[in-house]
Amino acid sequence: MSAPSPIRKGAPRFGDSARMMQHGRIAGPMPWVIAIMIALTVMAATAGLALANVAGGARAEIAGGLTVQVVEAAPLERNRQAERALSWFANREDVASVRRVPDDELAALIEPWLGELGTGAEDGGVPVPALIDVRLSGPVTAARLEQMRQGLARQAPAARIDAQASWLAPVFDAIRSLQLLAVGLIVLLAATSAAAVWLSARSALGANRETIETIHHLGGTDGQIAAIFQRQIAFDAALGGAAGLLLGLAAVFVLGQQFADLGSGLVAGGGLGAADWVLVGAIPLVGMVLAVITARYTVISALRRML
């Protein structure tokens, strides 16, 4: 090619540059709006995913869990029945593990509530039931539970069996509600972002109306004109999306630290896996695609009104 001429410098390829349109028209607040939307979406999504992991982890942990209490005031009889229940479980094939919670561990567990008094019924303390942790292979079904109750009643009439999952049912319900809330938030954020892009594309369309008409009269196609807007919005969305992702991740990191400090076993199960992070990282890209599609739809439908 010939030597570069001053004219060619920075000359825009058709539709290749924001210079086709009044500069900065579609930009303005757009990257900021997109950044905020993406940051909020990232937070909602990480919360939803973390909750899913918490629920999943807890469910797996307690899925086969049974708690057996031998409620008997007389210590000797209580011990006898507890031992018989223990061996009854130990002999079953569908039991993965069985363990009697030692008395001192139990005492430590209830001490905060009952004080020193709680320990040892012999010295006039409150009688504490014997506790047995049973882990079945496979989940606890109602039929299985009933069958076990009947079997155990013959060995240890004072024993009560409860599925651990049933205690946590309200917690799972709450987690499910929170997850639905997160999904709802994400949908709302996406709709709001689309509306913001639509408004912004409309105003850019208005501000560049004469230019668009001129390009239209010179034989520019709707696709060519829309492409100018799409490029601009894609650029804005990329900028805003990157900023939003960083912002959202920073917030998630700070929150994560605080939850980790709580040291609760339940929350500890809420870490995000690699797949979750990929999903979170895809949010700005999805946002960009959504913005470009919205801009294209807006511009094309406005152009259709011209001959």
């Binding site: 004219i7 210079r19 086709m20 230019t211 008409e213 390009i215 034989g219 060519q224």
Partner: peptide, 18 residues
């Protein structure tokens, strides 16, 4: 109907670019 923010060169080049 010249495009206001394009140079004379870019205005003339417009139909060829289109």
């Amino acid at each position: 109907r010249l495009v206001p923010h394009l140079s004379a060169y870019d205005n003339v080049a417009l139909p060829l670019r289109i």
